[in-house]
Design a protein around this nucleic acid. Structure first.
Lengths: 111, 111
DNA sequence: TTAAAGAGTGGTTATTTTACCAAATAACAT
DNA sequence: ATGTTATTTGGTAAAATAACCACTCTTTAA
């Protein structure tokens, strides 16, 4: 069976998937997603541990939301964020495996 | 138990993980990774289906390699790429679930 | 009703990313 | 030796990203 170039439909799906991965591909946003694996958090709780302007944090959350990774809910003065599809963080062990492999290889090079 | 801000070690790990996700967070690179899930491919086989300059393709592969996602091997005139940690593509069903959720919600909005 | 706290927006700037072209390198065939 | 194919590298321009500041909006508290 010969391989095919991706058609328009497939290309759209790939783009959407890449967009999700890209959203998680920033240290601050990945950290946020990991925090949310333990349950919802308001912006102020997340901000407590992030050394960045509040507006920056807000924009990172907007990126995660736009990608469909999180959803938000306003309760009183606070806005709570939570993961929409929790499996998204269950992947991370494999991502870590990638890193461990790289580290092991570098160590092997050093003897 | 009170949550803690990430220390230097944790921050380095998060950065490394984010870097892997970022590498996969581009349509062309994600497509390449998916192709490699079926086994190694040389650059020319991948290029066959990608509408971009050869140099562009080469640079995308370099990004994946630098992130530790793929490794390469030169055999004759060709360079073959393969996944280093195959589980990296097993995640994608969850990524798709994120997208499906978004689509379903949008559909629900339309009634 | 006024002030303060939590969060988001708009604007700006520096940095990064991506794509293309041209040129270089490596291996093979003639 | 020379050309040809496969791939990478360097340069550059355009576009996207990420950070900060100043400001706005909303909700609660005084």
């Amino acid at each position: 069976m010969k391989r095919q170039p991706p058609n328009a439909r497939e290309r759209a799906l790939i783009e959407a998937k890449a967009n999700v991965l890209k959203a998680l591909g920033h240290p601050t946003r990945l950290w946020m997603a990991e925090q949310l694996a333990d349950g919802e958090r308001c912006v102020c709780e997340l901000a407590e541990f992030i050394d960045a302007d509040f507006s920056t944090i807000s924009k990172h959350l907007a990126v995660l939301k736009q990608a469909g990774v999180v959803e938000d809910e306003k309760r009183g003065k606070q806005v709570y964020y939570r993961l929409k599809v929790p499996c998204i963080v269950q992947y991370l062990p494999c991502v870590e495996a990638v890193i461990e492999t790289s580290i092991r290889e570098r160590a092997a090079l050093l003897g």
